[in-house]
Design a protein around this nucleic acid. Structure first.
Lengths: 122, 122
DNA sequence: TCGAACCATCACATACGTGTGAAGGTCTAC
DNA sequence: GTAGACCTTCACACGTATGTGATGGTTCGA
């Protein structure tokens, strides 16, 4: 598909799709006319990238963890250098901490809302 | 305590502490000399703010949810307008989605790391 | 009393995700 | 063949969280 369709299906501006490509987060083949051509998997990929961006990860980190996210896993493990593994472990824990923080605060909000409702059931 | 101590205890630059105050995320009383004076609770507050910022929330939103985070709850519920409640509900769900996304991807990274270790146990 | 170590405000700079628009090429339908 | 809807690259701009430095006041110990 071309960039317009991908933009519409993912709720992402064309500008950003080009930006994500520039940052190495998505790849697109090119037609003879220079137009980008995306496959179906790009839709999920873009949505995933946006989710991670929204969760506070910078493109630099997202790019590093993307190889982990391909299913079915078709990775050439020799690429996995010790530094890369260390980075991934660190990022894995960092993401867990972030999620923890979010859930903790989400619970606090929920609790607050419950209290408000109890105070004024209307 | 003064800003230097708070900065050290929270791992945050003085510049950012002043910025957070400017954004209404923390409050500080002032001494006769104009110096900011923070209480003990500021330490936790700053750490919480940083966690939320790191999780992708903008200061604007953090400011809105802060009243939910005070324990013990000492809130004047009449302040809770319907719009504010709607905002909080939205943000609560948004945070849950973010956390979900993070955990899903964290699991993918963990799975990848397990696979790498299995491939090369050394 | 002097110097170091704080503090204050203010201004400018940077990185990053994102918007917007210009200038121009390509495709399709009439 | 022309109009409109796509696409391309490029450049400039913005908001937000941050860094850095200038300039000057306060506190405190030698």
């Amino acid at each position: 598909m071309r960039i317009g369709e991908l933009a519409e299906r993912t709720g992402t501006s064309r500008r950003l799709l080009r930006y994500y490509e520039e940052q190495g987060l998505i790849i697109a083949s090119r037609g003879a006319n220079g137009y980008r051509d995306y496959d179906e998997a790009s839709v999920d990929r873009v949505i995933q990238v946006r989710g991670l961006l929204d969760a506070g990860l910078p493109t630099r980190i997202i790019k590093q963890i993307l190889p982990c996210l391909d299913k079915p896993r078709a990775i050439y493990f020799p690429d996995a250098t010790p530094e890369m593994i260390a980075t991934l472990e660190e990022e894995r824990d960092r993401m867990a901490r972030r999620a923890e923080c979010l859930l903790r605060n989400r619970d606090a909000i929920a609790e607050y809302l419950d209290a408000v409702r109890e105070y004024d059931p209307a």
